[in-house]
Lab assay of single mutants.
Amino acid sequence: VTLFVASYDYEARTEDDLSFHKGEKFQILNSSEGDWWEARSLTTGETGYIPSNYVAPV
């Protein structure tokens, strides 16, 4: 399981994006799509795309 933590807050801009807060942890589901990764929030359980430059490895 690949875990990352949010370095910043992010507000979703499309329905496919995932909003999150600094400190929130994610399981990365797919990182092969470039700068936007499909992730599941371990806080909310929601799945969506997050900007990879807003998160760091745990």
Rank of each mutant, 00 (worst) to 15 (best):
V1I: 12
V1M: 13
V1Q: 13
V1P: 12
V1C: 15
V1W: 11
V1R: 11
T2W: 10
T2F: 11
T2H: 12
T2I: 13
T2V: 13
L3F: 12
L3Q: 08
L3G: 04
L3N: 06
F4E: 03
F4L: 06
F4R: 04
F4W: 15
F4Q: 04
V5M: 09
V5L: 06
A6E: 04
A6R: 00
A6N: 02
A6I: 03
S7R: 13
S7Y: 13
Y8P: 00
Y8V: 09
Y8A: 13
Y8T: 09
D9Y: 04
D9H: 05
D9F: 04
D9P: 07
Y10K: 01
Y10S: 02
Y10V: 02
Y10E: 01
Y10Q: 01
Y10N: 03
E11R: 07
E11V: 13
E11S: 09
E11D: 09
A12N: 05
A12V: 00
A12E: 02
A12S: 10
A12W: 03
R13G: 09
R13A: 11
R13M: 12
R13F: 08
R13T: 13
R13D: 08
T14D: 11
T14E: 08
T14H: 14
T14Q: 10
T14A: 11
T14I: 07
T14P: 02
E15A: 13
E15S: 13
E15Y: 09
E15F: 10
E15V: 12
E15H: 11
D16H: 15
D16V: 13
D16M: 14
D16E: 12
D17Q: 15
D17N: 11
D17L: 10
D17M: 14
D17T: 15
L18A: 00
L18Y: 04
L18I: 10
S19K: 04
S19V: 02
S19L: 02
S19T: 09
F20R: 00
F20N: 00
F20A: 02
H21E: 08
H21M: 11
H21F: 12
H21I: 12
H21Q: 12
H21T: 12
H21C: 14
H21L: 12
H21R: 14
K22P: 03
K22H: 06
K22W: 05
K22I: 09
G23W: 04
G23Q: 01
G23F: 05
G23I: 00
E24C: 05
E24I: 02
E24S: 04
E24T: 07
K25L: 15
K25R: 11
K25D: 02
K25Y: 15
K25S: 07
K25H: 12
F26A: 00
F26I: 05
Q27F: 13
I28P: 02
I28Q: 01
I28M: 03
I28N: 01
I28H: 00
L29Y: 06
L29N: 04
L29W: 05
L29A: 05
L29I: 11
N30A: 08
N30F: 06
N30I: 07
N30W: 07
N30K: 08
S31Y: 12
S31R: 12
S31L: 10
S31C: 15
S31G: 09
S31M: 15
S32V: 10
S32T: 12
S32P: 10
S32E: 10
S32C: 13
E33S: 13
E33L: 13
E33I: 11
E33T: 12
E33N: 15
E33Y: 12
G34V: 11
G34I: 10
G34H: 11
G34R: 12
G34Y: 09
G34K: 13
G34S: 12
D35Q: 11
D35F: 13
D35S: 09
D35V: 10
D35G: 11
D35A: 09
W36K: 11
W36N: 05
W36P: 04
W36C: 08
W36Q: 06
W37D: 01
W37I: 06
W37G: 01
W37N: 00
W37K: 02
E38D: 04
E38R: 11
E38K: 12
E38V: 15
E38L: 15
E38C: 15
E38P: 05
A39C: 04
A39P: 01
A39F: 02
A39N: 00
R40T: 11
R40A: 05
R40F: 08
R40G: 01
R40V: 11
R40I: 11
S41Q: 04
S41F: 02
S41N: 12
S41W: 01
S41A: 06
S41R: 11
L42R: 03
L42P: 02
T43S: 11
T43V: 10
T43H: 10
T43C: 13
T43G: 06
T44L: 00
T44K: 03
T44W: 02
T44I: 00
T44Q: 02
G45H: 06
G45I: 01
G45Q: 06
G45F: 07
G45T: 03
E46L: 14
E46F: 10
E46H: 11
E46T: 07
T47F: 07
T47D: 04
T47H: 07
T47Y: 08
T47G: 03
G48T: 01
G48K: 01
Y49P: 01
Y49C: 14
Y49M: 14
Y49E: 02
I50S: 01
I50N: 01
I50K: 00
I50L: 06
I50R: 00
I50Q: 00
I50M: 02
I50C: 02
P51G: 03
P51F: 06
S52W: 07
S52G: 07
S52M: 09
S52I: 07
S52A: 13
S52D: 03
S52C: 13
S52F: 07
N53E: 10
N53H: 12
N53W: 15
N53R: 12
Y54H: 08
Y54N: 05
Y54V: 06
Y54C: 13
Y54M: 13
Y54P: 04
V55K: 02
V55P: 03
V55H: 03
V55N: 02
V55M: 09
V55F: 09
V55E: 03
A56T: 15
A56V: 15
A56S: 13
A56F: 13
P57D: 05
P57G: 05
P57N: 05
P57A: 09
V58E: 10
V58H: 08
